[in-house]
Design a protein around this nucleic acid. Sequence first.
DNA 1: TCTGGGGTCCTAGGACCC
DNA 2: TCTGGGGTCCTAGGACCC
Length: 387
Amino acid sequence: VSTTILHADLDAFFASVEQRDDPRLQGRPVIVGGGVVLAASYEARARGVRSAMGGAQARRLCPDAVVVRPRFDAYLEASRAVHVVFEQTTPIVEALSIDEAFLDVRGLERIAGTPVEIAARLRREVRLRVGLPITIGVARTRFLAKVASGVAKPDGLLVVPPEREEAFLDPLPVGMLWGVGPRTAAKLRDRGILTAGQAAALDEATLVRLLGRGTGRHAHALVHRRDRRPPRGRRRRPGRRSMGAQSALGRRRTTPEAARVVLVRLVDKLARRLRSAGLACRTVVLRLRFDDSTRATRSHTLPLATAQTSTILVAACDLLAVARPLIERRGLTLVGVTLTNLSDDVTGQLVLPFDARARALDAALDDVRERFGSKAITRAVLVRRRP
DNA sequence: TCTGGGGTCCTAGGACCC
DNA sequence: TCTGGGGTCCTAGGACCC
């Protein structure tokens, strides 16, 4: 029942790193990323520049902005440094993304002070040791803490005590709710529901009817400030669910042949990432986007998990062939591959379906050799399953 | 308003098995 | 033989988040 959850969120992260590393950028509008805005400093945001905005539009809004190429290595380095400060603050740290995390400081009162004192010190430490501004929201639940930090930005600290939760949340627009994006917000707006408080007046069944089961229940829980799950430490994180890569193709009309060239590059890159993560995938998803902004996916699930480039590539090319009519009808603007059904379970028995052909078995054995060396297999047995 | 890349989760229908 | 029910997997799509 205590207010011990912190949501720490670095302000305009990529842009702040650039301003930190180049004093000439300090106090000036900075845009990271060329074609599309990856991050905008607060000076640029004041002029209407937003992340994910097209580069041309951003420059129109803010002609004097300094446009910088992203330096992902520098961001990763900064993120790690901030994380060290988090870990020294409390053992319970749940990293949400490269620039934000939940920290649970319950039980630290005697050692480290109240949550607010801890949060204030954390902000100073990050500023001092990493040189970056960070905003922290403090509340009883993760969701409220996150909303609080969003309201407190930039470079702020905001506490929502339990008795003020309702007054804090109810006037906020529904779009601020976690999991409520443009589509869901529009559905609610059609019913005249604009704020969290208005949504809270509806019962769960109504919200489920309006938004679907998952989204409806979730929204109902959030507006009633139920979010019981505490931040989980990094110990047992659920593990990666998918791994993907994509490539935008630009304006020119792309033939299936040209798409295959891109596909080979993507699959090669992904298979390497997969192997270096010690994972294998079983489902290959081909993602396509067309110039009329429609999308399509085609997927195939293999009989066994693999991390082998050739196996994945064959599946991906088959999917491309399946999608060929689609591609010929519309202009292709993006090709992507996502590998899902990930597992790290490669030891022990490999179970093939009864009708597995010799090639599938070879592929499975090659897979094991590729990952564990040519001597990894001591015995392969074909067992007939009971009929 | 289509301009990047990397993810997560949910839903719904069909196939298949018990 | 007919009827009913339950569960899992696969595929495709949708929505959302940073």
